[in-house]
């Protein structure tokens, strides 16, 4: 277990270093980072002054060391647009994004797991058909289209939910639903197929041969095994939802990190984009690490690597 955890932690640190290197190189690979970051109408003198100020004329290794030591203390320079440090701005947007992804994931879990379980235990039933339909829709409807349709219908026509912003308690419902729908579909499908598969395993026959009650067999012997693939998918999906809500935050004007990213790209605010990219990677890596730990807690084959 300890060795497993340490190796996973090591992998995460390595990956994080890779992300930092990638971001550092990306900005410089296109040639002159100063030209990239300055407005198109800036005079050559301005660009030169900017290059000097940012240290882009120094040797690359030196720049990288500076970049790294900044990164370690969370300093990614000042936002060009706001002229204030970039990282605190990202952090300020974090609660909104976490709320959106969290509510979306919760919806996906609360709807998806029961539907998948019932579907797996009673394949072909009405609930199973509903679940499979939802899984298909969830994974095939483009989310930006769904978002617009929902705004038109539930916000404009029916007036049940605000169409944008984060000002009311129910503002989060529509964007979270749109964000969570593909995950919901995936959870339904995965839960269903896992239940079907586990029910056919030899050890379930053994449990039956011991005369155990069906309820005991489902909860003790089936569900624990179903939880193993579920945990990893939920972890991956949560990371994806935290990092991938740009469209949805933009369409619903949700003041989260995704919206900030969209805006900062428009402003050509490279330090801010960098800070967002690195921060999002960090969050995803942390979630993956947490998932790996949860995985080991459930699955003894990983916990005790004999």
């Amino acid at each position: 277990m300890q060795r497993y955890f340490i190796s996973k932690l090591g992998q995460s640190v390595l990956l994080l270093f890779g992300v930092l290197l990638l971001v550092f190189v990306m900005v410089r690979i296109t040639g002159d980072p100063a030209a990239l970051m300055m407005p198109r109408e800036a005079s050559p003198e301005d660009v030169e002054a900017f290059r000097e100020a940012m240290g882009f004329n120094r040797p690359l290794p030196l720049q990288f060391v500076d970049f790294l030591s900044g990164a370690i203390v969370g300093d990614f320079g000042n936002s060009l647009h706001f002229k204030t440090p970039a990282m605190p701005m990202v952090l300020a947007r974090l609660p909104a994004t976490v709320q959106l992804a969290g509510v979306g994931l919760l919806m996906a879990i609360v709807v998806g797991i029961p539907l998948g379980l019932v579907g797996g235990f009673t394949p072909g039933s009405l609930v199973d058909s509903v679940g499979r339909g939802l899984a298909l829709l969830g994974q095939s409807i483009p989310n930006f289209w769904l978002a617009l349709i929902m705004i038109l219908f539930f916000a404009v026509r029916l007036g049940w939910f605000p169409s944008f912003g984060r000002d009311y308690w129910n503002s989060v419902i529509m964007p979270a639903f749109v964000l969570g729908l593909p995950t919901m579909g995936q959870i339904v499908r995965l839960t269903r197929s896992a239940v079907l598969e586990i029910r056919g395993e030899d050890f379930i026959r053994t449990a039956n041969s011991k005369g155990l009650e069906p309820g005991t067999i489902y909860t003790k012997h089936v569900l624990r095994n179903v939880a193993i693939p579920l945990v990893s998918v939920i972890g991956v999906q949560f990371g994806y939802m935290l990092g991938g809500s740009i469209y949805i935050e933009t369409i619903f004007a949700w003041p989260g990190i995704g919206q900030l990213l969209e805006q900062s790209i428009g402003w050509r605010d490279f330090p801010l984009v960098q800070a967002i990219a690195i921060f999002t990677s960090l969050v995803v890596l942390a979630i993956n690490l947490f998932t790996d730990v949860a995985y080991a807690v459930i699955d003894p084959r990983i916990r005790y690597d004999t």
């Binding site: 030899d202 050890f203 053994t206 041969s209 012997h221 624990r224 095994n225 699955d299 003894p300 084959r301």
Partner: peptide, 16 residues
């Protein structure tokens, strides 16, 4: 009592 052929798949991997 029943003993099955394959002792590897006949025991539940996540229970002691």
């Amino acid at each position: 009592g029943f003993v099955f052929q394959d002792p590897i798949s006949s025991l539940n991997p996540v229970l002691t």
